[in-house]
Computed example of a mutant assay.
Amino acid sequence: MSILQWVSTGNESDVDAGEVLHSMALDPDIDVILVYLEGVRDGARLRAALEAARLQRKPVVAIKVGRTAAGRDAAASHTASLTGEDRVFDAICRNFGVHRADSVEELLDVAYAALHAIRHCRMPRNPSTVILSPSGGFAVHMTDQAEQLGPELPPPPPAVRQAILDMVPYASAANPVDITGRC
Rank of each mutant, 00 (worst) to 15 (best):
M1A: 11
I3P: 01
L4F: 11
Q5F: 02
S8W: 06
T9F: 09
T9E: 13
T9H: 13
T9N: 09
G10H: 00
N11R: 09
E12L: 01
A17S: 14
G18E: 05
E19C: 05
V20N: 01
L21V: 15
H22P: 00
H22G: 12
D27E: 11
D31G: 11
V32D: 01
L34V: 06
L34Q: 02
V35E: 04
E38V: 04
G43S: 10
A44N: 07
R45A: 15
L46A: 13
R47V: 09
A52S: 14
L55T: 09
R57W: 08
K58V: 08
V60S: 06
G66C: 04
G66F: 08
A69E: 15
A70N: 11
G71V: 10
R72Y: 07
R72I: 11
D73A: 15
A74M: 03
A76F: 14
A76N: 03
T79C: 07
S81I: 08
L82H: 06
L82G: 10
E85F: 02
F89L: 06
F89P: 03
D90E: 15
I92E: 12
R94G: 02
G97N: 13
H99K: 00
A101W: 02
A101F: 05
E105A: 09
E106Q: 14
L108Q: 03
L108T: 02
V110E: 12
A114P: 00
A114M: 07
L115H: 14
H116S: 11
H116F: 11
H116L: 05
A117F: 04
I118S: 05
R122P: 05
R122L: 14
M123Y: 00
P124E: 02
R125E: 13
N126P: 00
P127C: 04
I131T: 05
G136L: 10
G136Q: 04
G137S: 02
T143E: 01
T143I: 06
A146I: 13
L149I: 08
P151D: 12
E152K: 14
E152A: 15
L153V: 06
P157Y: 05
P158L: 13
P158Y: 03
Q162P: 03
Q162V: 05
A163F: 04
I164R: 00
M167G: 12
M167R: 15
V168H: 05
P169V: 07
Y170S: 14
Y170D: 15
S172K: 10
S172E: 12
A173L: 02
P176K: 09
V177S: 10
V177Q: 13
D178E: 11
I179H: 02
T180C: 13
T180V: 14
R182E: 10
C183R: 13
